[in-house]
Simulated scan of single mutants.
Amino acid sequence: MRLYALCDQELLDRNDLSLEDFVTIAKKNGAEVIQYRNKTADISFIKQQLIQLRQLFEGFLIVNDSFELAQFCDGVHVGQEDLQSIDSDTKKAVKILKEVIGKDKIIGISTHNKDEIIKANELDLNYIGLGAFRATGTKDVDSILGDKLDELASLSIHPVAAIGGVKLDDKFKNITYHVIGSGLL
């Protein structure tokens, strides 16, 4: 199992954890990637958090949605709606995103079903997030993939990160990364 730790600011606040606390836990569990997600703060706060995370963590650092801050990390993860807000043509959206963040940066997108995976196969991405595997306390999810997640992952030409309620002891065949947020705490 390869660990991709989701550092959600709401989760940190709810559990009275600092970035240092989260990074310590992530490192202890062997995290290779940390994604910082903050759906409510202004851009300057997110920037400061990314700068602090970069000082604390030497692995890959990804920002959720705030692609304008990609210079402070290694890449960006966007959802389907975020991609559509860039351009309704997803190929164009990814091309624009690459131009904005730089060709050397990582791009990952969330996928939730076979159709989204097939479309993602046509995109210049570094990975896809696939889920939700099960219900999670960090995000409202419309559908749970459960045991279908591993089978769907086999359809992707990109590395796949299992998202949504994933735990450290979950076992998958076709998954590159386990994305874990609250399950680390």
Rank of each mutant, 00 (worst) to 15 (best):
V141Y: 08
K139P: 10
L56G: 03
N126M: 09
H178I: 00
S66E: 11
D170I: 06
H112C: 08
Y36C: 05
V179D: 00
Y4D: 02
S44V: 14
D74P: 03
L56H: 01
E116I: 03
K148G: 03
E81K: 04
Q48N: 14
G108D: 05
D21H: 03
E20I: 13
L50M: 11
A162M: 10
P159I: 11
G75H: 06
H158R: 11
L17E: 00
C7K: 00
G165R: 04
M1N: 08
V141H: 05
D82K: 01
A120C: 05
N38E: 10
S143N: 13
Q55Y: 02
I117F: 07
D115R: 02
E122C: 05
D147E: 14
G137C: 09
K148V: 14
Q80D: 11
T136L: 01
I144V: 15
T138Q: 09
T138N: 10
L50K: 07
S110T: 15
Y127N: 13
Y4C: 01
H77P: 11
K95H: 14
I118L: 12
R134A: 15
G59Y: 09
I109C: 08
S143W: 08
S44A: 08
T111F: 12
D13H: 00
G164T: 13
L53R: 01
R54A: 12
V78Q: 01
N64W: 12
G30H: 07
N15R: 05
K95M: 12
L83E: 04
L3T: 12
D169T: 13
L53Q: 01
L152K: 09
S88M: 00
A5H: 01
Q49V: 12
E116Q: 10
E68T: 05
S156T: 14
L130A: 01
K92F: 08
D142I: 08
A153L: 02
A93P: 05
S85E: 10
I144T: 09
I163S: 02
F72K: 04
D89Y: 01
R2P: 06
Y36F: 15
I25W: 06
D147F: 01
S154R: 14
